Simulated assay, not measured.
Amino acid sequence: MEIRETFAKNLRRLRQSKGLSQEELAHRADLDRTYISSLERSIYSPSIDVVDRLSTALGVEAADLLKKSY
């Protein structure tokens, strides 16, 4: 699995576990909802700054968004 796919799965899983909609997460991270959707579908690769903003908005470590699950 590519890192982009790993990130996408972790982003969706963490967002849903926090009970957040894509729109709410986008608002908290100051991003566009359609960008969140694209990230969750592995269309885009986030910059390190975006990973940081999303992890802060989710209340997790940035590494949690990049960890592969085996």
Rank of each mutant, 00 (worst) to 15 (best):
E24S: 07
T6A: 11
S45G: 10
E23H: 12
D30P: 00
A8Q: 09
K18Q: 15
R53T: 06
L31C: 10
K9C: 13
E23K: 15
Y35G: 01
S42W: 03
S47D: 10
L58D: 09
L65I: 05
A63F: 10
D49E: 14
E40F: 01
L39S: 00
H27V: 11
P46C: 02
E2W: 08
I43D: 12
M1S: 14
Y35R: 03
K18E: 12
G59A: 08
K68L: 07
I43R: 13
I43E: 14
D30F: 00
A63V: 15
R12L: 13
R33F: 10
M1F: 02
I36S: 02
E23T: 14
D49S: 15
L11Q: 09
R13W: 01
A8R: 11
V60G: 01
R53D: 10
L20N: 03
R12M: 09
A26L: 02
L11A: 04
L20M: 14
S21V: 04
L14M: 13
L39G: 02
E40W: 11
I43Q: 12
L25W: 07
H27W: 13
D52T: 03
T34G: 00
A63Y: 13
E40M: 13
S21M: 11
S17V: 06
L65K: 07
S42R: 13
R53L: 13
D52A: 12
S69Y: 05
V50G: 00
S38L: 12
S69E: 15
R13S: 12
S42G: 06
M1C: 04
S55C: 08
A57P: 02
L58W: 04
E24Y: 01
R12Q: 15
Y70W: 08
G59W: 09
S47F: 06
A29M: 03
S47I: 11
I48F: 13
V60F: 03
E2V: 06
S17L: 14
V60N: 05
D30A: 06
S21T: 15
Q16I: 08
I36K: 09
R53N: 07
L65Q: 10
R12K: 15
Y35T: 11
Y70E: 14
T6E: 10
S55R: 10
D64W: 04
D32G: 04
S55I: 09
E23L: 11
L11N: 02
L20A: 09
L66T: 01
L25R: 00
S69L: 09
S47C: 02
Q16C: 06
P46H: 08
S69M: 03
E2F: 11
L31V: 10
L58S: 05
R41W: 00
S21C: 00
N10Y: 12
G19R: 08
V60Q: 04
S38Q: 15
N10W: 14
S69D: 14
Q22S: 05
E2Q: 11
S45P: 00
